[in-house]
């Protein structure tokens, strides 16, 4: 494959299979997509359509014993598929970072946030503990969390879901990765927190030029943030289009079905105007 400098992340012919007692079962097939610098690519589909499997295979986080990942995943021109676990570990977090759906499960419950934060920073850089602490505090400030030094001393369970999700975003951005994979970043949050977290992501994109792969089943999230959208069904990509194109002229039947499944709230437009008055 030709390496194209226009793309940060280039995925082609991605094929993931899992070995079960009944034989090999394909999970996702024929996945092709590219991510440009500073752009947001939305990945939509209902549960079970292979969105998360795709993201996990990009991060090389699938169990190597039971699953097989074929195809090419190029990050800044470097092939990730088949890299040794050690090498991959040094890339993960530094060059490609992951925001998980459930912030409550993503942290170790018995270690203070500050220690988890500093550990991540020091794994990838040669900063001293003090420097790492300062970097951590600055990036907590970046995501608009009140009293960052206080949060560093707290345990994960002492924060709310929305706050914890912002801590996760802070950890993700402090090493300035070129790609962030956000897997359902707002699904576990309530509507008010949802908007705040999306604002943070949007700001990271505009300030640092980070590319974001935004995975969601919520077309509202996609329509707020994505530049381009990939629609997945049964482990395959069924449609790939510009976000305006997709909302105005959906081509595939499944995309139309997804668009129609949104709970109708025609009041949306008039009330937005009402708010502005």
């Amino acid at each position: 494959m030709i390496i194209d400098p226009r793309y940060v992340l280039q995925v082609s012919g991605l094929h993931v299979t899992v070995n079960t007692a009944q034989g090999t079962v394909p999970l996702v097939q024929d996945i092709h997509f590219e991510l440009k610098p500073g752009r947001v690519l939305g990945l939509v589909g209902e549960s079970g359509s292979g969105k998360t499997i795709t993201s996990l295979s990009l991060m090389q986080l699938l169990d190597r014993k039971t699953t097989r990942v074929e195809g090419s995943i190029r990050l800044n021109g470097r092939e990730l598929n088949g890299l040794k676990a050690d090498t991959m570990r040094s890339i993960r977090g530094k060059e490609i970072a992951f925001i998980m759906q459930n912030p409550m499960n993503a942290f170790t419950p018995v270690i203070k946030i500050g220690d988890q934060f500093i550990e991540t920073i020091r794994t990838h850089t040669s900063l001293t503990k003090k420097q790492a602490f300062e970097l951590a505090v600055t990036s907590l400030e970046d995501v608009n969390l009140p009293d960052p030094a206080g949060i560093m001393k707290q345990y994960p369970f002492q924060l709310s879901g929305g706050m914890l999700q912002r801590v996760m975003i802070a950890i993700t951005i402090c090493l300035r990765p070129s790609v962030i994979i956000a897997d359902e970043p707002t699904t576990a949050l309530d509507v008010t927190n949802q908007l705040q977290v999306l604002r943070q992501l949007e700001r990271i994109r505009s300030e640092y030029g980070t590319s974001i792969l935004l995975i969601s089943h919520d077309l509202g999230v996609i329509s707020e943030m994505a530049d381009e959208v990939v629609v997945m069904q049964h482990g395959r990509i069924v449609e790939k289009a510009d976000v305006y194109q997709l909302f105005d002229h959906p081509q595939h039947e499944y995309t139309k079905k997804l668009l129609n499944a949104r709970p109708a709230l025609q009041i949306n437009q008039p009330t937005k105007e009402f708010v502005m008055l």
Binding site: V191, T192, Q194, L195, L198, R199, E202, D218, L219, G220, V221, S223, E224, M225, A226, V243, Y244, F247, R262, L265, I267, N268, Q269, T271, K272, F274, V275
Partner: peptide, 26 residues
Amino acid sequence: FLQLPHPSVQRLLQSILSEHPRSRSL
């Protein structure tokens, strides 16, 4: 309900995500 001027109703309405990329609120 949607016409109520109460601040918490308005907050809820403002937190609704857009239904089309044209009406983005971010």
